[in-house]
Design a protein around this nucleic acid. Structure first.
Length: 279
DNA sequence: AAGATGACCAACCGCGTACAC
DNA sequence: CGTGTACGCGGTTGGTCATCT
């Protein structure tokens, strides 16, 4: 049994006409986002559902900024890219009104070249706490001298993790996390999973742990274990537990930690959470 | 003036994951 | 639990416009 083609037979490709834009906008405004394939059919658009979704998200959706990326935004992109690598969607979440596609294009066209010419353009300390780890010191030093691409993590995807309602545990709530696909993790025993278990889950794809540049989540865990409660990172760690909702990307957690640290470093609390709820 | 080249950006494509049945 | 479908993401392509030769 073959897969049902995702697109209508007479599919239109290429640039969208204003007529199509209007049709899509009207339809989404009335019926909402989602069910893109049905949407394309019902709206009478001879477009692939994917194409409709992309057009809406990248171009038509109200709130999209478009236009020149400001210096602040550029700086934010550089910092976030150093933290996350090519996780464009994640980066875009931190820049309200900007889409992953826009940021990706901007990076590929402008920033990658810019940074190639000026390796030290962004001298922001990626993770000062990393320097506690002597292994990482060399890496950090190298970082200051080399192209950013050399030290950014490889593009990676981390499975969404199911996190049950946090449960009280010695003063802070420890998330009981489980991969959604693994139903066995719903047992009571599993409910006592700590961040450690959760990290192991993450590492199922050999991610984060093997890569020094992505080891900040482990670092969080280490600090938690040794009780370094004074550092911004570890204090914010407790806060992170409260951030945990039913579904999240683990990288988002450590990103929140990093952003909080950055704010702390700057000595003020800018709108680093953008359109997100602060921890 | 015309072709070549480069920059920019929107859109396409394939893959991995979530989810419904 | 297995399978098929929908969705989201990131890499890549291709069209358009500007600049260069």
């Amino acid at each position: 049994m073959g897969r049902i083609p995702c697109c209508p037979k007479e599919i239109v490709k290429g640039a969208w006409s204003t007529q199509e834009d209007e049709t899509l906008t009207k339809y989404v405004t009335i019926h909402g986002e989602g069910k893109w394939q049905k949407l394309a059919l019902k709206a009478g658009l001879k477009r692939c559902g994917k194409s409709c979704r992309q057009r809406w998200l990248n171009y038509l959706k109200p709130g999209n900024k478009r236009g020149q990326i400001s210096l602040d935004e550029e700086d934010m992109i550089i910092r976030l890219h150093r933290l996350l690598g090519n996780r464009w969607a994640l980066i875009a979440k931190r820049l309200p009104g900007r889409t992953d596609n826009e940021i990706k294009n901007y990076w590929n066209i402008n920033l990658s070249k810019k940074l190639e010419k000026q390796p030290t353009l962004s001298s922001w300390p990626i993770s000062t706490s990393l320097q506690h780890n002597h292994k990482c010191c060399e890496q950090v030093e190298k970082t200051k001298q080399t192209h950013v691409a050399l030290e950014t993590p490889l593009p990676r995807r981390v499975k969404d993790v199911q996190c049950n309602k946090t449960r009280e545990n010695k003063g802070y709530s420890s998330p009981s996390c489980s991969n959604k696909r693994e139903g066995s993790r719903n047992s009571d025993d599993e409910a006592t999973n700590t961040l450690n278990n959760y990290l192991i889950d993450i590492d199922q794809n050999k991610e984060l742990i093997e890569d020094d540049s992505s080891s900040k989540v482990l670092e969080i865990e280490d600090q938690k274990r040794v009780g370094l409660t004074n550092s911004p990172t570890s204090t914010s760690l407790a806060n992170q537990y409260h951030l945990l909702t039913s579904k999240f990307d683990p990288l988002e957690i450590f990103l929140d930690v990093e952003l909080e640290r950055i704010a702390s470093f700057m000595g003020h609390n800018e709108d680093i959470y953008c359109n997100r709820e602060p921890p």
